[in-house]
């Protein structure tokens, strides 16, 4: 792989992001020094067990971290602009228009008191100068795109008149209607039926690809990500433990944690199970062991792991791993 011609700069560059919470029990370092890129038109999977800081990375990019949380350090460069340096006014022009975010539970993401037409329209009112008629047409078009039957009639319906899957389609429509260049989807299908999950993931991939937009897919489900993502970032206790092209990470995981996640994916045909193959549980993020945070659960832990934290070290083709004893790349 040669480095030239100069690739265009990534759409999003997260550099050494630290998102900390000041609590009575001490500082909770929900995200502690995360760095990764999202290229233009790229799908990046952000994976890890619950509590690993995935959502906080997403909220940080949206600048939606509320006290007692704060972005304690790092930069978030969106198309060259550091989002951490923007004020609320400037951020409102970014949110929704440039970067959209959707959340896990479609049952609660929509305001129960407004029609979905109104909630779609709100996005256009905020971010475009379209006339009422043009906006209405855009809304109908968008609902059609996400697969809502009879979109025109459905505009006047309230959220409670839709099923969970349909609501998440509406949420996706709202997120995409102003044409954002980056969509952050935080466990968008976790709350839904397995059969609907795949449909919605495909829908999102489609909506993003069609517009040349990028997608950060946050999930604890490595299987879902492996089919969609171009690149994968693995987060454990607020730190990135592995990062690389999806193929590399899935086929040649180098971090014992990633390997554990992969091993716990049931094979096709079997019922999905929780991540039970990794022994132990995620430690309390306030009382992380010194050294490697994964050491208490790692089958390969050595004394050095408990003393010094491994740095994230890049290998060929950007496959990076934070481990003193990275797994050998299996012969391909």
């Amino acid at each position: 792989m040669t480095a030239h011609p100069m690739p265009p700069s990534p759409l999003l560059q997260v550099r050494d992001l630290r998102t900390w919470f000041d609590t009575f029990g001490g500082v909770v370092k929900a995200v502690d020094g995360a760095s990764f890129d999202v290229g233009r038109g790229e799908i990046v999977g952000l994976v890890g067990e619950s509590g690993g800081g995935k959502s906080m990375v997403g909220y940080s990019i949206m600048r939606l971290i509320d006290p007692p949380g704060r972005i304690a350090g790092g930069r978030i460069l969106f198309d060259g602009t550091d989002l951490c340096g923007l004020d609320e006014r400037a951020l409102r022009k970014i949110r929704g228009r440039e970067i959209a975010m959707i959340f896990q539970d479609p049952m609660t993401a929509l305001n129960p008191l407004y029609t979905i037409g109104d909630q779609l329209d709100e996005m256009l009112r905020l971010h475009t100068g379209l006339s009422a008629r043009e906006r209405r047409l855009r809304c109908i078009e968008m609902l059609h795109e996400v697969g809502i039957p009879q979109p025109e009639a459905r505009l006047g319906n309230y959220p409670h008149q839709f099923s969970g899957g349909m609501r998440q389609r509406v949420v996706i429509a709202i997120a995409m209607i102003a044409g954002p260049r980056l969509l952050i989807a935080d466990e968008p299908t976790t709350a839904l039926d397995v059969t609907i999950q795949a449909q919605l993931l495909r829908l999102m991939k489609h909506a993003v690809e069609k517009r040349g937009a990028s997608l950060i897919l946050i999930t604890h489900d490595l299987a879902a990500v492996s089919q969609m993502a171009d690149r994968i970032v693995v987060l454990y206790c607020g730190r990135i433990v592995e990062r690389g092209r999806a193929r590399d990470v899935i086929e040649r995981p180098r971090h014992p944690y990633t390997r554990g996640l992969l091993d716990s994916i049931p094979h096709q045909g079997l019922k999905r199970r929780r991540l039970s193959q990794i022994p132990g549980t995620v430690p309390d993020i306030r009382k992380l062991p010194p050294g490697c945070a994964f050491a208490p659960r790692c089958p390969m832990a050595a004394p050095v792991c408990r003393e010094s934290a491994p740095n994230l070290v890049g290998g060929p083709s950007g496959h990076a791993v934070a481990c003193h004893f990275p797994l050998e790349a299996k012969a391909a």
Binding site: M62, L64, R92, I94, A100, F103, D105, T108, L110, N111
Partner: peptide
């Protein structure tokens, strides 16, 4: 604390819109 308030903020709704249009009405 509700999700739809956070979603409204993620949409770029201003402080007043979040508080009154989305918050107060509920």
């Amino acid at each position: 604390r509700q999700d739809f308030v956070r979603f409204a903020r993620a949409k770029g709704v201003g402080q007043r819109g979040v508080l009154f249009r989305h918050g107060l009405k509920n």
